[in-house]
């Protein structure tokens, strides 16, 4: 009589059951499993501990592990929900789910607000907005005088800060995004729609049928 030996699949620390992750996010089980392939690739690129460190995140984003970027730092910090300096698989999947084309716009609006609320005050304030504009100019070839940067910040505030109290609150942000939908463009990653095509190798190892 024959027997079938099934070798248990080894997972890295922080691994979570794809069935549970799929139930909590916009992804299917197959998509979560495909994301695990991407996660493994990123999380083993420098420090092979199965967690994404900031240098590995920067390497995946910029092909350079030392590139400092305010916005990449903010995204990393928001992905790192447990605030322990690394991104584990569950955090990776839950955060990327916000960028899924089928995820509710309100979730995307709220994530973008938290991204831009640099000092976690619950508001986007003029000095934060100016700091972000300067950071963007620093990473691009665009050169603008301080006066022009100030005008851009003032004009944006005049449009977004409807209550005129000198800060943008979540409701004002929502209204501003509805009027300027292009601001949410980078909150949607079309790649996530066909993640199983991008990482087909998971299909051979899949432990669960959708």
């Amino acid at each position: 009589m024959g027997c079938v030996c099934v070798k248990p699949v080894k997972h890295t620390p922080g691994y979570e059951d794809p069935v549970i992750l799929a139930s909590e996010t916009t992804f299917t089980v197959s998509e979560v499993e495909a994301l695990y392939e991407l996660f493994k690739k990123i999380s083993h690129s420098i420090i092979k501990d199965g967690l994404i460190h900031k240098e590995e995140f920067q390497l995946a984003l910029f092909r350079n592990s030392n590139k400092k970027n305010l916005f990449a730092d903010r995204v990393f910090d928001l992905f790192d929900a447990k605030r322990n300096g690394v991104i584990d698989f569950g955090e990776f999947v839950r955060s990327l789910s916000i960028f899924h084309p089928d995820t509710e716009k309100t979730e995307k609006i709220s994530f973008a607000f938290r991204l831009y609320d640099l000092r976690h005050t619950g508001f986007i304030e003029p000095d934060e907005l100016k700091e972000m504009v300067l950071a963007l100019l620093n990473e691009s070839d665009l050169c603008l005088s301080d006066d022009v940067v100030q005008q851009i910040v003032d004009k944006t505030f005049a449009e977004a800060d409807k209550k005129g109290d000198g800060k943008i609150d979540p409701d004002e942000w929502k209204e501003f995004v509805v009027q300027n939908p292009s601001l949410l463009k980078n909150m949607t990653l079309p790649y996530l729609k066909d993640i199983t095509m991008a990482f087909p190798s998971f299909v051979m190892k899949s432990e669960v049928n959708d």
């Binding site: 991204l115 907005l129 991008a198």
Partner: peptide, 25 residues
């Protein structure tokens, strides 16, 4: 006219916010 730009529009072009690069091989 740069002063007519929307600050958030400008910021959203940051490479650090382009998570699509995570999926590029």
């Amino acid at each position: 006219r740069p002063a007519a730009m929307n600050a958030f529009e400008l910021i959203s072009t940051s490479q650090g916010l382009n998570l699509g690069s995570l999926f590029e091989k």
